[in-house]
Computed example of a mutant assay.
Amino acid sequence: MARLLQVTRPAAIALLATTGFAALPATARAGECPADRVVADSNRAVETQPRGVTDDVLASVDLAKEPAAVQNRLLRLRRLVVQPGGVVPWHSHGMRPAIIYIVEGEITEYASTCAVPIDHRAGEATVERNPTQHWWRNNGSRPAVLLSADFFPVADDPHMM
């Protein structure tokens, strides 16, 4: 008769950390470009105009007035609602890092740094940084709601996607 071995959670974690994890294949996290599909200049500016999207600034902080004293930059939080078929047009994150959180729905990203479209679902967050240039489209049947926090150059258009 086989004996059942009981392993405590800490022991199981230690066992996986020292033996099992190394054998697991590397996979992309949800909402990221698969490692084997990361390439420079893979997608171009297909959609250059917003369509079916609202962009509301919820709050911003003038970083020049904070202890960090970062001149000409805002820390900005926006809510974007992208209707089915809607588009967030081609834009760059060369000088504007951001974090996007998908609150509701699904949306597809077409990035200059990935050879395949990247699907993002509710509950996921994604980082946008240099050299990312991209556009997004809601290919689903219901609105996608996104929160965008970015390090925004004050001189730029305040509703730049």
Rank of each mutant, 00 (worst) to 15 (best):
V82R: 09
R121P: 15
L63D: 04
D62F: 04
D56W: 04
V61I: 10
P131G: 02
L63K: 06
V87C: 08
I107D: 07
T126N: 14
L63G: 00
R121T: 15
F151A: 03
V127Q: 09
V127A: 13
W136Q: 07
V145I: 12
T108E: 08
L147Y: 10
G140C: 08
I118H: 15
H134Q: 08
T132D: 12
K65N: 12
G85N: 06
A68T: 12
I99F: 09
P117S: 13
G123N: 11
N139E: 14
L63P: 07
D62G: 03
W136Y: 14
R142C: 08
P67G: 14
L58V: 04
H134S: 08
W90V: 08
V61M: 00
R142G: 03
V87F: 10
C114Y: 15
V87E: 02
S148D: 10
W136C: 11
E66L: 10
N72H: 14
A59P: 02
G123H: 09
S148R: 06
L147C: 09
I102C: 14
S112F: 04
A68I: 14
R96I: 00
P89G: 04
P84Y: 03
L80E: 03
H93S: 05
P67Y: 08
F151C: 00
T132E: 12
A98V: 11
R76M: 11
R96C: 05
T113Y: 07
